[in-house]
Simulated scan of single mutants.
Amino acid sequence: MSARQTPETPTLRDRATDAFDHSRERAVEAYDAAREKATEAKAKAKDGIDTNPLVALGGGLAIGALIAALLPKTKAEERLLGDAGRKITGTARDAAAAAKEAGREKLAELNITRDAGANAVQSLLNGLRDAAKSSGQAALGTVKKTD
């Protein structure tokens, strides 16, 4: 202990320990807040899927089709599959078109609109955005307080 320190004066080690403890508490709070927001987003997504299951199915199919369309054919696929590959591709394209049409008919029959689907997806995205924003703000707050 130096001449200027009294038993009540916190040492550098004490201050570092306090800062660490405070940061840990804030991190736990941020984690809990993020987990709560994620749970809320999950519940909103589940409600949206329960309300509009065909819209969710259509969204999943659309995402799958988009991914498949973005993946290029390789030379090995072309060489190995040749005519059979082209036939499979044509059949898959026809099946996708039939599924798309059947899905549209069923959605029209159930009076499920594009707007309802867009709203469900937007609600999910908003929940995820809010959870990420809350987590980031809590983490940033912790970092600022320890500086």
Rank of each mutant, 00 (worst) to 15 (best):
residue 1 M to N: 14
residue 3 A to K: 08
residue 3 A to Q: 07
residue 4 R to G: 12
residue 4 R to H: 09
residue 6 T to R: 15
residue 7 P to E: 07
residue 9 T to Q: 04
residue 13 R to C: 05
residue 16 A to Y: 13
residue 18 D to E: 15
residue 18 D to R: 15
residue 19 A to P: 08
residue 20 F to G: 11
residue 21 D to A: 03
residue 22 H to R: 15
residue 23 S to P: 00
residue 27 A to N: 04
residue 28 V to D: 10
residue 30 A to D: 06
residue 30 A to G: 13
residue 31 Y to H: 12
residue 32 D to M: 12
residue 37 K to C: 08
residue 39 T to R: 15
residue 40 E to T: 07
residue 42 K to C: 05
residue 43 A to H: 13
residue 43 A to P: 03
residue 44 K to V: 15
residue 44 K to A: 15
residue 47 D to H: 09
residue 49 I to K: 01
residue 50 D to P: 08
residue 50 D to C: 14
residue 54 L to Q: 12
residue 54 L to G: 08
residue 55 V to C: 08
residue 57 L to F: 04
residue 63 I to H: 03
residue 63 I to F: 10
residue 65 A to S: 15
residue 70 L to H: 13
residue 70 L to C: 15
residue 71 L to V: 07
residue 72 P to I: 08
residue 72 P to N: 07
residue 72 P to A: 00
residue 72 P to R: 09
residue 73 K to W: 10
residue 75 K to V: 11
residue 79 R to G: 00
residue 79 R to H: 05
residue 80 L to Y: 05
residue 80 L to G: 02
residue 82 G to K: 12
residue 84 A to V: 14
residue 84 A to R: 12
residue 85 G to C: 13
residue 86 R to M: 01
residue 86 R to P: 01
residue 87 K to L: 13
residue 91 T to D: 08
residue 91 T to H: 04
residue 97 A to W: 01
residue 97 A to L: 05
residue 100 K to G: 12
residue 105 E to S: 02
residue 110 L to R: 05
residue 110 L to E: 01
residue 117 G to K: 01
residue 118 A to P: 04
residue 124 L to G: 02
residue 124 L to F: 02
residue 125 L to C: 08
residue 125 L to M: 02
residue 127 G to L: 06
residue 127 G to T: 07
residue 128 L to P: 10
residue 132 A to T: 05
residue 132 A to E: 06
residue 132 A to I: 05
residue 135 S to R: 01
residue 136 G to M: 10
residue 138 A to H: 04
residue 138 A to N: 02
residue 140 L to H: 10
residue 140 L to Y: 06
residue 144 K to P: 03
residue 144 K to T: 12
residue 146 T to L: 08
